[in-house]
Design a binder for these strands. Structure first.
Lengths: 333, 333
DNA sequence: CTGTTAGCGCGTTCAA
DNA sequence: TTGAACGCGCTAACAG
């Protein structure tokens, strides 16, 4: 690996001059520029990003924390964030927190130790206090899918209460009165918010909420199956089932079929998130769009604007509104 | 951000001593270790990984190139690689090449500029020559899902010919004689290999290959739909359809249903890859297991062993064998 | 066991 | 417009 020093020797100029043509910030005469450039080319010179970072205190890379590296939801998130950042010459360093406080913490510390210029976090397990400290430290931070008090300007969230409301409202509008619900793990804010929206829609329609109509799942497919089975016992007459995410909806659909229910003639199902595979399901899942794509883009633009002085092409917004994606699993009664 | 220098001052020792307690490689007396550790704690010291890397020429991070950051296939790959590496204290830096020669090249150069200790590449677009040069340069490299001549020891691949063979063989064994095929883009080695396997199985069973029975897709869901429609015109009597990956199989299933074919009573379908969502499909997709998980693990172990001297718990293998995953979309004739 | 001293490869003053 | 010199924060000989 050639170094800047060898280039300077080959070009017969000083080290500083080579640095100047690399960064193009100071004046360099056309002639010396040519000399340097051809020297770089013939040596196959590539700057050492590590050394550049140490000297300039800039890494041109932003850290991204997700909960998992697999799954459509995070795939979409990583993909969009990387896209807009790379388009602007910035790189992304991705880590996974696995929804575990210790591991999330470690992942964030890793990103900090790599001196990322900014952090984009989908942090679920770490405390609000920790996030506040982080935001008040040197490194610019934004948080996705989590609203932290006093940090509104750093958070990008979807209105989960409204999403939950819309899902159940759609079922109600289709004529359903006995509506079961499979929630996510309720210690998670998004899960409890969605459930709150569900209750609100029920109430508004004059329907009473029966605690037997709910099952607490874990956002994974298998708990959708479990939930479906459980609910058949505790709340046998439901004609519609709202699930707090698409994975569980998929599991519920499987269980429903195994129990002999045709969808949607015998049972209607509504999901949440609108992940990619929801349209591959059969019947195609009616669900609530979680604008993860838009949130990821916005977070990336925030970073570009606040850290790299690259103005965002769109106004920065922090609250995103979900909407119903009407497909084939919700039937009218 | 406290530096090692401030810690040394606070602890009343030299800079080198602090370094020693951090890295734990040289002897340090219990007393001074305590002093240093408490100084580090009270200052909230965190080593600057950038500076460490520059000085030690070690980054403790390995670069991973995938084609896309989304999709089950790459999700699985990233997830497993990260898991085994992190378990051994190494970090992963992920980049995407988007199956484009220029972008793959840039992504790899980025990883090199970050001085990754090793590279794990799922490179589809870059040339064999480039990969050979890379392997012969300083940085250790392994390639996933691509066999490069002379680089067998650095490649981890599944036997795609055999996979294609098994898929079609399964259909033949179930009594099918008119078997259509939707391939991937044939300039890709894995796609053409799978097709070769298909032909081999046909031949072996005394069935003649009809070029009208094949449609060249692009591995995406939509081309599965197109393929299905196309084949109904060119090869109308097929009772089984083999697809070169699960996404296209999913698309074909949708198209088949829209055309009124029941699966599997009227039409059998076999996929390839066994990605996560293949079991969420209805009916659950019969497919060929692509041991991406095993390959990812193996690649990670290779790196640990060759670069970090951490012996692999399992013998390193380079060729993986696919197998049939028997589910619900293949019916007997 | 501990301290001193060179670098690692590069950016950035400050002079010239 | 260019060069010399210093420093970024840390590791790694080499002494002691």
């Amino acid at each position: 690996m050639a170094t800047i020093y060898q280039v300077s020797e080959a070009a017969g100029v000083s080290l500083a001059t080579v640095s100047r043509v690399m960064n193009g910030n100071a004046k360099v005469s056309e002639r010396t520029r040519k000399k340097v450039e051809s020297a770089m080319a013939s040596l196959g010179y590539q700057p050492n990003a590590i050394a550049q970072s140490l000297a300039s205190n800039r890494t041109n890379s932003v850290g991204l924390l997700v909960s998992e590296l697999h799954g459509s939801y995070f795939g979409d998130l990583m993909s969009t964030v990387e896209n807009v950042l790379k388009r602007n010459g910035k790189h992304v360093i991705i880590t996974a927190g696995h929804v575990d406080e210790k591991r999330e913490h470690e992942a964030i510390e890793f990103l900090k130790s790599r001196r990322c210029d900014a952090l984009i976090l989908h942090a679920e397990a770490v405390s609000d206090d920790y996030l506040k400290k982080l935001v008040n430290s040197k490194v610019p931070v934004v948080v996705i899918n989590r609203k932290v008090d006093e940090l509104e300007q750093n958070c990008f969230v979807v209105d989960n209460v409204k999403g939950g409301y819309l899902a159940t409202k759609a079922a109600i509008d289709a004529g359903h009165k006995n509506i079961a619900y499979i929630s996510g793990p309720l210690f998670k804010k998004d899960a409890s918010d969605r459930l709150a929206g569900h209750k609100k829609a029920l109430e508004e329609a004059g329907l009473t909420f029966d605690s037997n109509s709910t099952f607490e799942g874990d956002f994974h497919e298998s708990s959708g199956q479990e939930g479906m089975q459980h609910l058949q016992a505790t709340f046998p007459d439901f004609t519609a089932l709202v699930c707090a995410n698409d994975e569980m909806a998929s599991g519920a659909m499987t269980a429903a079929r195994e129990a002999g229910f045709d969808i949607p003639s015998k049972l209607s199902i509504v999901g949440f998130d609108n992940v990619l595979f929801s349209r591959y399901l059969y019947p195609k899942l009616t669900t609530i769009n979680n604008p993860i794509h838009a949130m990821g883009e916005m977070a990336a633009h925030w970073v570009l604007e606040h850290v790299y002085d690259i103005k965002s092409p769109v106004p920065i917004e922090h609250l995103f509104v979900p909407e119903v994606v009407d497909r084939d699993t919700l039937g009218t009664l």
